[in-house]
Amino acid sequence: TPSSSDVQLTEEAVKRYLIRKPMTTKDLLKKFQTKRTGLSSEQTVNVLAQILKKLNPERKNINDKMHFYLTE
């Protein structure tokens, strides 16, 4: 059964993903799809932007695409 809030877009959740492996903005957006978080597209973009600015992750290019990552 689909739930409107089986995934939460939080700083902790983003941190966990970025510690595990480098991700593009699109990879992150896939992890926090609007149908799973219950947020609108605009809210998702705004919240994720705030979280990324706060976490200030490392960046590197892989296959010409910018990836964010964190070390523990």
């Binding site: 699109k26 957006l29 597209s41 973009v45 932007a49 990324l52 960046r59």
Partner: peptide, 20 residues
């Protein structure tokens, strides 16, 4: 859809522009 995902990624990157 993937085009919506592309638009969201572009919007997010624009938000992060000064930061990146």
């Amino acid at each position: 859809s993937s085009s919506e995902a592309d638009e969201m990624a572009a919007a997010l990157e624009a938000e992060l522009n000064d930061f990146i």
